[in-house]
């Protein structure tokens, strides 16, 4: 079975998410993996080849972590409003940022069901 490419825009649609920044870029970004966590050290510990991050963290560190760990896009769950500093950094680093009202559990369930792969060690 080959790895499936999922467009970030498709993920936004699946999660019924609101795009905060990077809308014009996300059509060009395909991902294969997803990682869900609120603890950033856990995110940093893995290599996220073409992955997105699902997190309940809405502060600047979520975006910093994505930038440092080469994560393609960040989705904030449970409808939290991201801090202005997080939005600013995401814009600066060209990392698409979007918010879904779904819980982390729902968002993971849906994306896994559609074929996104987990991130390995």
């Amino acid at each position: 079975m080959g790895t499936l490419d999922m467009n970030v825009r498709e993920i936004v649609t699946l999660l019924d998410a609101e795009v905060i920044t990077g809308g014009e870029r996300m059509d060009k970004i395909d991902v294969q993996r997803c990682f869900s966590a609120d603890l950033m050290s856990d995110v940093l510990a893995r290599s996220h080849n073409n992955g997105i991050l699902l997190t309940g963290l809405a502060n600047i560190q979520a975006v910093r972590t994505a930038d440092i760990a080469d994560i393609k896009a960040v989705c904030i769950v449970r409808g939290k409003t991201p801090d202005p500093s997080a939005v600013e950094l995401a814009r600066q680093k060209s990392i698409p940022l979007f918010v879904t009202k779904k819980t982390m559990f729902e968002a993971c369930g849906i994306l896994y069901g559609k074929g996104l792969q987990p991130v390995g060690d």
């Binding site: 609120d38 603890l39 950033m40 050290s41 856990d42 510990a45 963290l57 502060n59 560190q61 979520a62």
Partner: peptide, 12 residues
């Protein structure tokens, strides 16, 4: 609460 302090920093 800010997403760190899980005792993984030095390990990482």
């Amino acid at each position: 609460e800010l997403g760190f302090g899980a005792g993984m920093g030095l390990v990482n």
